[in-house]
Simulated assay, not measured.
Amino acid sequence: MLLHKSKTLTFFTPTAFKNSGAHFFDTGISAGFPSPAEDFKEQRLSLDRELVKNKEATFFARVSGQSMIGAGLDDNDLLVIDRSLEPTNNKIAVCFLDGEFTVKRLKVDKDEVWLKPENPNYPIIKITQENDFIIWGIVTNVIKKV
């Protein structure tokens, strides 16, 4: 369900499905030579249970832009955001800054906060008292299409 759209992020609320889960083979996938002796144990895997730790405080947002490519967040990736987590130094956070949502790495030193992009083509943003600023949530996972 679409919740909000800004220039850089489009927010969605997670929807749980009953009896959801894809088939999951808990054997590991070899990136080298396959092991023909492996027995395949089939289970059901729910991405909701894997990625969402606090359902009431979790949201999804789709990335738009290139400012975090060095952290592996690319255009159109889907972020899993937990609003219940404590924002700390070096975490990747979704922030509301001067009327727009943005995703950046937090740099916290004493009473100062910076929003650091992971792309040298974007400037580091120092948060001041003049900014309308809220740390909205912490990014816990990224879902990519291959």
Rank of each mutant, 00 (worst) to 15 (best):
L85D: 08
F101E: 06
S84L: 11
L78W: 03
C95D: 00
K104R: 13
E86P: 01
L79P: 10
L97E: 00
D82H: 07
R105V: 06
P87G: 04
E86R: 14
E100R: 06
N89V: 01
T88L: 12
G70V: 04
P87C: 08
I92L: 05
N90Q: 14
E86M: 12
L106K: 04
F101I: 04
V103T: 14
D75L: 07
A71D: 14
G72C: 11
G70Y: 06
G99H: 05
N76D: 15
E86Q: 15
C95H: 02
V94K: 00
F101C: 05
A93F: 08
D77F: 05
L78R: 01
N76T: 14
K91M: 14
I81R: 07
L79C: 10
N89A: 02
I92C: 02
D98L: 02
D98E: 10
R83H: 13
D77W: 04
S84V: 09
V94G: 00
G99K: 04
A93W: 05
G70I: 07
L106C: 05
D82C: 09
G99S: 03
I81N: 10
L97S: 00
L78K: 05
K104T: 07
L73G: 05
G70H: 08
R83L: 08
D82Q: 06
K107P: 00
V80M: 11
K107V: 14
V94S: 02
D77E: 07
D74Y: 15
E86D: 14
I92R: 02
V80I: 14
K107F: 14
D82Y: 09
E100W: 04
D77C: 06
I92H: 03
F96D: 00
T102K: 03
G72M: 07
K107W: 12
L106W: 09
L78N: 04
D75T: 12
I92A: 03
L106R: 03
L85R: 13
K91S: 12
T88C: 12
L106H: 04
E100V: 01
R83N: 09
F96Q: 02
I81P: 09
K107L: 13
S84W: 11
D75K: 06
D74H: 15
D75H: 15
K107C: 12
F96I: 00
S84D: 13
L78Y: 01
N90R: 14
S84P: 06
L106M: 06
R83W: 10
L78A: 02
L73V: 09
